[in-house]
Design a protein around this nucleic acid. Sequence first.
DNA 1: AGGTTAAAATTAGCTAGCTAACTAAAAATA
DNA 2: TATTTTTAGTTAGCTAGCTAATTTTAACCT
Lengths: 145, 145
Amino acid sequence: MFSSNEKLTRLMRHVLKLHRSHVDRLIRDYDVYPGQPPLLMRLSQQDGQSQRELAAGMLVKPATLTVMLGRMEKTGLVSRAPDDRDQRVTRVYLTDKGRIAAEAVMRAIEEVEARCFEGFLPEERLLLRRFVLQMHDNLSEWKPD
Amino acid sequence: MFSSNEKLTRLMRHVLKLHRSHVDRLIRDYDVYPGQPPLLMRLSQQDGQSQRELAAGMLVKPATLTVMLGRMEKTGLVSRAPDDRDQRVTRVYLTDKGRIAAEAVMRAIEEVEARCFEGFLPEERLLLRRFVLQMHDNLSEWKPD
DNA sequence: AGGTTAAAATTAGCTAGCTAACTAAAAATA
DNA sequence: TATTTTTAGTTAGCTAGCTAATTTTAACCT
């Protein structure tokens, strides 16, 4: 299915697509849509972050988050409240429903991740991480000529 | 920036995002939008494929392609014509403009790919491919319990 | 203090991807 | 042959992501 001159990045894209669709399937009953798991994870690690902080942590643009949070507020997963000190910033909180969803998401991710790296030795996992980090450094240090 | 308990898949997602944005930047002058490079590459390898074949090769749903091709027809990168034998199938062809864009895309991808794997030994590349293939197999053989 | 600059969030408008429901043509079958 | 089933493609409606422009509030600076 994947010939050996197939670009590795294409293969990686496909793997991540599978990863995401598995997670989606496992949390289908929680009103959580495909892009939202990372947000729920971050909020359950630290509740009440500003949208800017969340966007930075999720490597996503603030505008993307604005729309996403609007939807999640509507489905009752999060609530928003302005910061006391700085009226510009909006802080985001998990609702009870959101907390339940976040735990389901956490379990789902752990499960998919475990499957994904089944058969990997610990040192292979480390090596893989080193490779991906090197790819990251190669691409992020690259200023256009 | 990426703590060692950060999920590896998240890191991979970020790397692919960088990869895509670099390619986008390099082809900015050819009316080619982010999802279109894979399509142009496939068509330049074999012109006149059916939409179904293209969708399967790109690992994308046919409905996605319908919309995408509509846009690309409008920007003049591709043309569509019904198959002679089977009136259900639509075949897709590169225009002259599309062929020029496809070559630019090819150069851009090669350039980014080269950057991405700079400093990798050939055997490291192979090892990485083996890892990613194993991830792929782990996730695609997984039938939900 | 008052005017300017910077920062946080939103809005508008686009592309990409999905699912589900539909149409039309070909193939299979009774 | 007539009916049913399968296949290719489209349409509608959604989420996710982006950029660019706008608004509002805080910070800065003379």
